[in-house]
Design a protein around this nucleic acid. Structure first.
Lengths: 221, 221
DNA sequence: CCGGATTTTCAGAAAGAGTTCAGGTTCGTG
DNA sequence: CACGAACCTGAACTCTTTCTGAAAATCCGG
């Protein structure tokens, strides 16, 4: 059970490490964001514990860099007490859980076990259609020619819907339901606008229009 | 409109039920996961509402059991506020939508209607006559030689009418009634115009004219 | 509060579907 | 066999839907 602990407070890091080792983990420590990024990419950890308050850069950036380079092990972030914003941002950036300082080591261990258990069943999930591959974790689109495009949130949700069922016609109303909830309902033209953007990525022929019916993702080719 | 409500909080369940019934649903309640699994498999519901926090087993397991035994009605899951993980897992396990507690009953009803509407189109229905197959979902015509033509709305409605009863003679007046409602009544020549377009797809011999009587779709070959 | 990214809106252009029209053709009947 | 009614045909026209590019509004992190 290899763990990466990213924590600049050396005293805390030492203490944690000894307890984690007692609990059966094998722990690598690093104190800097820079090293954390490299280690995370290089080594094969089963989980990471990441303090967000680092001297040489933000912990969130470390997490984002990991996630954008296919580092998929579960990450628990440590935040200052009550720092609600950090917590939210952390989860958005791909963290699996968080713990506010100060905390009991038992709780950290319990949560680490929890996120590791959860992550076991987690596949690096991608949707593949023709020469396109949509990466759900990284929210980006890879094309067979080797190019890769990161998508904005709305672009991604729309494309996932279409690619999730290639050949199926989705009406604009259905797509609206997928992208927006009941209280927010923008102009229907918004679908057309996003379809256009996606077509610039995947090519116009890949997303077909069925006039009066809707749109579909072409599974052939 | 039969619904299954799986909710262990009896008070909440009662309240919801009375409101759902006002909205025109007929609701079965169960408080346990065990019973939920059985009922879902046994009865013919149009949708399900599933609370993930159940005493005797996880709501997700109920959903998984349903889905792995071909229970296909749409399911909306109720999660504790902000329980981000539950929501994600729920959707992965086959839920159609989710709602975080606490919620407005109106929103629940709206979403139920939405997922039920969406699920209607899930059955794949086609009409097959001779070497032609009309796909009602995709509104397109497949021919035995492998070609496929997507149809416009009016083309499709007319062809479905003819193919729905091969060999039967439909008068122009009957066809007009099928295609248009009372307030819109275009030139009668419109039928001839569309028959012509269809013949270009299926071949002139496939749609026969009975002078003075009407048209029919040839079932022989 | 600023600057960049993202989302949303808008309005004119383009394309497509639906409809009409003006002959031409065919058929049945007297 | 001549005539009218019914039907066929191709093109033109109208109206709706979709496309498109740009601008405005909003969100978000610093």
């Amino acid at each position: 059970m290899r763990l990466l602990l990213v924590e600049d407070d050396r005293l805390l890091a030492e203490g944690l490490t000894s307890q984690l080792e007692k609990a059966g983990f094998s722990v690598d420590i690093t104190h800097t964001a820079k090293e954390a990024v490299v280690l995370g990419k290089q080594e094969d950890y089963k989980a990471g514990v990441l303090d967000l308050g680092l001297p040489d850069g933000n912990g969130l950036d470390v997490l984002r860099k990991w996630r954008s380079s296919k580092v998929t092990f579960p990450v628990l972030i440590l935040t200052a007490r009550g720092d609600w914003q950090d917590k939210v941002n952390g989860l958005k950036a791909g963290a699996d859980d968080y713990l506010a300082k100060p905390f009991q080591t038992e709780e950290l261990i319990a949560r680490l076990n929890a996120i590791m258990r959860r992550s076991e069943g987690r596949v690096h999930s991608t949707v593949k259609v023709g020469r396109f591959e949509l990466d759900e974790n990284r929210q980006c689109l890879q094309i067979e020619d080797g190019t890769e495009h990161s998508l904005t949130g709305t672009e991604f949700r729309l494309l996932r819907c279409l690619m999730g069922r290639p050949g199926h016609i989705f009406s604009k109303e259905q797509l609206m339901e997928q992208l927006y909830n009941l209280n927010e309902s923008p102009n229907e033209n918004i679908i057309e606008a996003y379809i256009r953007r996606l077509r610039k990525l995947v090519g116009a022929e890949t997303i077909a229009t069925r006039r009066g019916q809707g749109y579909l993702f072409n599974d052939s080719v």
